[in-house]
């Protein structure tokens, strides 16, 4: 299984029956393809859709129905469409249970940076600040290291923050980690990496409990 698929498949297990979930641009939007068909959830897309389901067959795609990443979608029974003010009222009012979001950097205190790399890449904020600040549970989906091999899981974010102390859990292809009041706790690790190796590729200080699950 590719690293990306491993992250997405693991992330899909986080979604519980009855959840209202926003899936951010990038890895998270792909989680919708890994959900069991009979799982009763409402996927929220901030461009104004509740009840997102996967793309229909190619010949019946509705070009006026996309998710926030531009993917063509369908809606499950009980879905709804609404304008952008209503969509973000849902977010700011705390009506979502869970947001899965990508990251440039995330740190052991749960700080998130995912909107600006000064001088290099600043595509904009989109819905990230409101989602990060107002959803009760934020799970970051990211590769463990960037393309140059540097850890994306840091002691302290260096890029401009999207929101402070907002992240609950981090899922990478190497590990599942929780942000706690004591620090960043390792919950699961991939079978093909030792704890020593994991510590060596992670800039953040990892707390290793007695029991660590298998990712």
């Amino acid at each position: 299984m590719s690293d990306i698929n491993r992250i997405i498949e693991r992330a899909a297990q986080e979604i519980r029956p009855g959840n209202v979930v926003n899936l951010g641009i990038g890895l998270p939007t792909q989680v919708v393809h890994y959900l069991p068909e009979n799982l009763e959830v409402l996927i929220h897309s901030e461009n104004g859709v509740l009840g997102v389901a996967g793309q229909p067959s190619v010949d019946v795609i509705d070009p006026f129905l996309i998710d926030s990443a531009g993917n063509y979608i369908s809606t499950r029974p009980g879905g709804s469409y609404f304008d952008s003010a209503v969509s973000f009222a849902m977010i700011r009012r705390g009506k979502l249970d869970l947001t899965m979001i990508g990251a440039f950097e995330v740190d052991q205190a749960g700080n998130l940076a995912n909107w600006k790399i000064p001088g290099k890449f600043s595509p904009g904020i989109g819905g990230a600040m409101e989602l990060a600040q107002k959803t009760p549970r934020i799970i970051v989906l990211t590769t463990h290291c960037d393309k140059k091999g540097n850890s994306k899981i840091l002691r302290q974010c260096r890029l401009p923050l999207t929101a402070k102390h907002c992240v609950s859990r981090i899922i990478t292809e190497k590990a599942v980690m929780d942000v706690t009041e004591h620090g960043l706790v390792l919950r699961e690790k991939a079978a093909d990496i030792s704890i020593e190796e994991l510590i060596s590729i992670t800039e953040a200080e990892l707390i290793i409990p007695d029991e660590v699950g298998v990712l």
Partner: peptide
């Protein structure tokens, strides 16, 4: 993005729901 970086286009970013509101 290039035009923004070159200064040929002024871009003002807002959080999406704040712009909507």
């Amino acid at each position: 993005i290039e035009m923004m970086n070159d200064g040929r286009l002024e871009v003002q970013f807002h959080p999406q729901g704040i712009l909507a509101e």
